[in-house]
């Protein structure tokens, strides 16, 4: 594959936000702002158990979106096994704590490490040669389906279709809706801080370099393959941690908790809303999506169709993310062209 083709390869995400704030106060400022707004949500919906459940799930998805964004937005690896990696965390935590008897916190950490290991391994396999981006998509999709088959098939351990109750965490603050919400919010902020610090570090510089021009990055001495695997490791750890924490809060896990159609499609839509490669975009996207999903609940199965349409539309026309584009439109004078970046491709 020619250098031009490889360089162009990342242009889908290269149109995304590249300016990265160097100042720590600004970084923590934006994360704190997100935290403050989301912290107020229980005051608003706190008396509805159902709505709190939806809000907690929304936060779990925000974590998924941050992890996916770290992998896809930073290094262009399309990980189509977000749900499965979260499931490794969820089922791992539940089984380690309930069946093996590992203390809850240790079970959670071990399960998250397990997810990191699986994600890192998939990435390592995929980045072997120049076809990394393609193989990442293929092999993660294969893994996603394998995981679903495994969960459904090994029903003596996983409960099959109906899933299993998670007794670990019951009777603790994790099962109190409000405290559980703040635990999940804390996890969102933790993921944001980790991603934010990563972006500011040498690793972040390498991510941007290889995203903008892989060949140039390679020439500048960035070990492209290694940084892709790093991103997959860290992002997958976030997915596993969020999946595990959600299992402890929800008190039950089933194949649909972490299903491909239930998680991956949603996370991709969230990212398309919030903006690929941005720091807080995934959280904004998750918020917008959670509200939208509640409004569309009447549609039932047709929601999947609607999200499919959204993925096509958003990735075709508004590749920087809906929210950043709208923000830019508001900021710009009316009449100027919208913020869809040109392809940078001849013909």
């Amino acid at each position: 594959m020619s250098g031009r083709a490889v360089a162009a390869g990342t242009s889908l995400v290269a149109g995304a936000e590249t300016r990265v704030s160097r100042s720590l106060p600004r970084l923590f400022g934006s994360i704190a702002a997100v935290g403050a707004v989301l912290a107020a949500v229980p005051l608003w919906v706190g008396d509805s158990r159902v709505r709190m459940g939806v809000a907690i799930l929304g936060l779990a998805f925000a974590c998924y979106a941050i992890g996916f964004n770290l992998i896809f937005g930073s290094t262009g690896q399309l990980f189509l096994c977000v749900g499965a990696l979260a499931g490794v965390g969820g089922y791992g935590t539940a089984l380690l704590a309930d069946r093996v008897g590992v203390p809850v916190v240790a079970a959670l950490v071990l399960a998250a490490l397990g997810a990191a290991l699986v994600g890192g391994l998939l990435s390592w396999v995929a980045v072997r040669r120049s076809l990394g981006v393609i193989f990442a998509g293929i092999i993660t999709l294969i893994f996603a389906l394998s995981f679903e088959n495994l969960v459904l098939g090994a029903s003596t351990i996983t409960g099959g279709d109906s899933g299993i109750q998670v007794s670990a965490g019951s009777g603790t603050f994790l099962r109190e809706r409000t405290t559980a919400y703040y635990v999940m919010l804390g996890l969102v902020l933790l993921c944001l801080v980790v991603h934010g610090l990563l972006r500011r570090s040498r690793v972040g510089w390498a991510f941007r370099a290889l995203r903008d021009d892989e060949v140039a990055a390679e020439l500048a001495g960035v070990d492209v393959a290694r940084y892709r695997v790093y991103a997959a490791l860290v992002g997958s750890a976030m997915l596993g941690l969020a999946g595990g924490t959600y299992a402890l809060i929800a008190g039950r896990v089933s194949p649909t908790t972490y299903g491909f159609a239930q998680v991956d499609v949603v996370v991709i839509v969230m990212l398309a809303f919030g903006g690929i490669g941005t720091l807080v975009g995934p959280v904004l996207g998750a918020t917008v999506f959670t509200i939208l999903d509640e409004l569309l609940i009447e549609l039932g199965q047709l929601r999947l169709l609607a999200y499919g349409v959204l993925i096509i539309v958003l990735f075709l026309w508004i590749r920087r993310g809906l929210i950043p584009t709208l923000a830019e439109l508001v900021r710009r004078k009316p009449g100027s062209p919208p913020g869809t970046a040109p392809d940078g491709e001849p013909g």
Binding site: A5, V6, A8, G9, T10, G137, V309, L310, I311
Partner: peptide
Amino acid sequence: HGEARVLLSLLLTLGAAFV
């Protein structure tokens, strides 16, 4: 062209699959 083509094809056909 190149990887951008594969990536966009993955995303759009995935969307179509969900539809």
